Structure formats: C-alpha cells, structure tokens
Amino acid sequence: MAHGVLEIDRVSKRYGDVVALREMTFQVHPGELFGFVGSNGAGKTTTMRIALGVLAADSGEVRWNGEPITLETRRRIGYMPEERGLYPRMKVLEQLVYLAELHGLSPAEARRSAEAWITRLGVRERRGDEVQKLSLGNQQRVQLAAALVHQPEVLVLDEPFSGLDPVAVDVMSQVLREKAAEGVPVVFSSHQLDLVERLCDRVGIVRGGSLVACGTVDELRAGGDSRLVVHAPAAPPGWADGLAGVRSAHVSGGRTVLELAPDADDQVVLRAALATGPVHEFTRQRPSLTELFRSVVTEENAA
C-alpha cells in the first residue's frame, strides 16, 4: 500500500459574509499523527469536509500524493464525520460489510475486515444489533470501524474521541498509533488537548478559519511564554517587578511564579533573585498545549 502526503494548500471557503476558511494550509506526512485544534466554529470541520471532497473550496486545493482529490482518491480515505453518519436501523456487522464493499473490497474481504475491526474495537457482541440501540460510546466505536474497514491510505477523523470512556480512549489511541506506524497519515480534531499533546507528532491551532500555529508540541511551547518558578525565601514583595522580559509575577505557595517573554534572559532573573538572599528553587516550565491554546483564544477575543 502506497502512502503519500495529504496537502491542504491555501484553501478558502465563505458562506455569504461569513469567512469559514482563510488560506488554510498544512501538510500531513506518511506515518504522522496530526492534531487539529481550535474553538467551535474555527474551521476544523469545514477543512475536513473539503479534504474529503464532500464540500467544495472557493479557492485553493487539496492534494493526495501530489494529485488533486478525485472520486477514486476519496475511496482510499477513511473519514469519521463529527455528526456521525451511520444508518441507525442497520445492524452493525452488515453495515460495516456494506461500507467496505462500497469502497471496493470483495464480499469475503469486507466480511473479514468488518469482523476484525468490531473485535478489535470491543463491539463484537453487538454485531447483530441495530446501531440506534447502541450506547453513544459504542456507536462511536462502530463509526471508527467504518472509517477503517476498507483499509484506508489516509485517515481524516473529526472529534473521534468525543464521548468515549477512558478504556475506549486508550483503544482508539492505540489504533491511531498503529495506523501511523503502518505509514498512514492521520489527521484528527479534538477538544481534549491533553490527549492531542500526548498522541500527536505535530499540532495545528486554528483560529477564525486560519492556521495560526503549527509544529511539534515542543516547537509550539518554545515559541510561547514560559514560566519560571523561583523560591527565594528572603525576597521582598515585588522583587522581580521591572526586570526585562518579565511579563507578570505572582506568589503561590511561598514561591514567585514569573511569566517570561520568549526572548527573556532567565540569568538576569536568577541574579536578581540571588541578590535578595538564598535561592532554593529555580525551575523553568514550558506551557502545556492547553495553556498555549488558551493564550491563542485570548488573543482572538482581545483582537
């Protein structure tokens, strides 16, 4: 199975006066887990629908292996829509077999693949049930099986972890890691930022229809404000006020917590702390993905 690069190249989309996407651009490489995060309405679902070809872009292009997405290409994509697209009255196994055949698998291959995925995802005992009779979490597992049953070459998953219990989250995470290890490019959106931080090779943060930050979590952290925790017991209140690059300071649990600008020199802070007496702790902390995201959203609201 050949694996290529999924390219979203300067894709824009409007609905009347509302700009849904503005020059959206990113790539997902073979074997990469790419996390797509943003507030509701930021443009994640629109991007994914355009990537699949179910929605037309006003401008820009989506390419797979260097070629524009076609009907044939779409058959090789595993897509999981946010609003869930299963037939509620159809039984689990027959639905998965049907979807696999639609994507070109023979009846025997389709049944074998469907059986394998419902077993792997823990819904084998529900194989004869109608989808509408399943719990939301089990519907979610079947929806993932539907995205995987035709052995896709690329995965595009919109909020795949929504509504899952912790055990199902672990199973889903393991499956996505395995598909990436096979060389499949995987892009998924999620509001569970701790999960994105743990799972993804790279992360794109979307705001107002544009990609405003993209990189590994470490790269994104390096570009943001960092935090210094200083325990200098003899330091008077306000000892760090006015230091270059220190954006804010507050005392927490006897320690001074400083927010530093990206270009701040922490050695200047250390010298200032030592000038007050002994320093028992001097720790630099990078912001979590959740804090970075909050910072980006705050910038949006302030704009």
Results as ranks from 00 to 15, higher is better:
2 A>Y: 02
4 G>D: 08
5 V>H: 00
6 L>K: 06
7 E>D: 05
7 E>Y: 01
8 I>S: 12
8 I>V: 15
8 I>L: 15
13 K>E: 00
14 R>V: 03
16 G>C: 09
16 G>K: 13
16 G>N: 12
16 G>Y: 13
18 V>D: 11
19 V>T: 13
20 A>T: 10
20 A>C: 05
20 A>V: 07
26 F>K: 13
28 V>P: 02
32 E>I: 06
33 L>R: 01
33 L>Y: 00
34 F>N: 08
36 F>P: 01
46 T>K: 01
47 T>L: 02
47 T>H: 01
48 M>H: 00
53 G>Q: 11
55 L>G: 06
58 D>M: 07
58 D>G: 05
59 S>N: 12
65 N>R: 13
67 E>Q: 15
67 E>K: 14
67 E>W: 05
68 P>S: 13
73 T>K: 14
76 R>P: 10
79 Y>R: 00
84 R>Q: 06
88 P>K: 05
90 M>Q: 13
93 L>T: 09
95 Q>M: 12
96 L>M: 11
99 L>G: 13
99 L>M: 14
106 S>E: 07
107 P>E: 08
109 E>W: 12
113 S>Y: 09
118 I>F: 10
122 G>S: 07
125 E>P: 11
125 E>S: 14
130 E>K: 15
130 E>V: 07
138 N>L: 08
140 Q>K: 12
144 L>F: 02
145 A>T: 04
147 A>V: 10
148 L>F: 04
148 L>G: 04
149 V>D: 04
149 V>M: 01
151 Q>S: 13
151 Q>W: 08
152 P>N: 02
152 P>T: 00
159 E>G: 05
159 E>S: 03
163 G>R: 00
163 G>H: 02
168 A>Q: 14
178 E>L: 11
179 K>M: 15
182 E>G: 15
185 P>V: 08
185 P>A: 07
187 V>Q: 02
189 S>K: 02
190 S>P: 10
190 S>H: 08
191 H>S: 09
195 L>H: 03
196 V>G: 07
198 R>Q: 03
203 V>K: 03
207 R>H: 14
208 G>T: 01
210 S>G: 10
211 L>W: 05
212 V>N: 05
215 G>N: 09
215 G>H: 08
218 D>Y: 00
220 L>F: 13
229 V>K: 11
234 A>I: 00
235 A>E: 01
235 A>L: 01
236 P>M: 06
238 G>L: 05
241 D>G: 03
242 G>F: 03
245 G>H: 03
250 H>G: 11
251 V>T: 12
254 G>E: 06
256 T>H: 12
258 L>A: 09
263 D>S: 14
264 A>L: 06
265 D>L: 14
265 D>A: 15
267 Q>P: 07
268 V>K: 01
275 A>L: 08
279 V>A: 09
281 E>N: 04
282 F>P: 02
284 R>L: 13
287 P>R: 06
287 P>D: 05
287 P>Q: 08
291 E>D: 15
297 V>E: 10
298 T>E: 15
301 N>F: 11
301 N>W: 10
302 A>R: 15
